[in-house]
Write a protein that binds this DNA or RNA. Sequence first.
DNA 1: CTATAATACTGTATATTATACAGTATTGTC
DNA 2: GACAATACTGTATAATATACAGTATTATAG
Lengths: 113, 113
Amino acid sequence: MIEPEVIQEHVDKLSAEMRRGLIVLVVMSQLETEEYGYSLLKKLEEKGYDITQDTLYPLMRRLETQGYLNSDWKVDEPRPRRYYQLNELGEAVLEALRKEWKEQFKVIEEITK
Amino acid sequence: MIEPEVIQEHVDKLSAEMRRGLIVLVVMSQLETEEYGYSLLKKLEEKGYDITQDTLYPLMRRLETQGYLNSDWKVDEPRPRRYYQLNELGEAVLEALRKEWKEQFKVIEEITK
DNA sequence: CTATAATACTGTATATTATACAGTATTGTC
DNA sequence: GACAATACTGTATAATATACAGTATTATAG
C-alpha cells in the first residue's frame, strides 16, 4: 500500500503540468473584455482555477509579445493598472483554438477514460 | 482580415502547447496493460491523437525514471522490444489523476466556453 | 495615526521537459 | 536487392511556467 500523501504529491506535480498547457486557452478566453493582472487572478481563483501571480503576469507579457494582446497602462484610477485585451489576431486565434479543442477534448476523453 | 493560414499557424503552435500537458495522462492511461513504444505510437495515432517518436520515447523514459513505469526488454519476439507498464505507484497515481481531472475539465470547460 | 493586509505591478533567474537531431539495426516486401 | 516499416538509444536545444527579488500604493483595523 502506498501512502495517500505520497500519491497526492505526485498527482499535484503532474496536475500542475497538465494545467500548464491549458493556461493559454483559459487566459485568452477571459480577455475578450479587458482585464488587468490582479483582477484576472482573482476572477480565475473565484472560478476554481488556481493560478499564481508568478504564472499569470509573465504569461500576459508573453501573450502580448507574441502579438495576441494589447496592453494599456491606465493611471486615472485609484491606482495604476495595466489592462490587457485580445487584439484582432488574438480574437481570431482564440476562436479557432476553441473550435479545435472541442474536438481534442473529445479525443482525449475517449482515450483516457 | 487576417489570413486563415496565419491563424492556423498560431493555433497549431498553441495547440501543441496545450496537448503537451495532457500527454502524461494520455500515455499513462494506455499503460495499464503493457505496450512498447512503437505499438503505443500507432495506437494513439489510430485514435486520433497525434504524437511523434520524438515525444513519446523520451516521455516513457521519463515516466520510468520518475517511478511510474516498469520496463522489460523482451528479446524472444520477431524483434527486440522494450515493454512498459504502470507499476503500483503508477496505477495509484493514474487513478487519482483521473479523478482530479474530471473536476478540472469541468472548471476549464466552464471558464473557456 | 500606525501597523498590516491587500492591491498591483516589473525584472531576471532557473528548472523542467517536449521536441529535435543523429544514429543504429532488423524485418518485411516489392 | 532496394526500400519502407519497425523499434529503439543518446544527447542537444529551445521554450516557458514558476520562482525569486524587489517596489510602491491604498485600504482597514486597532
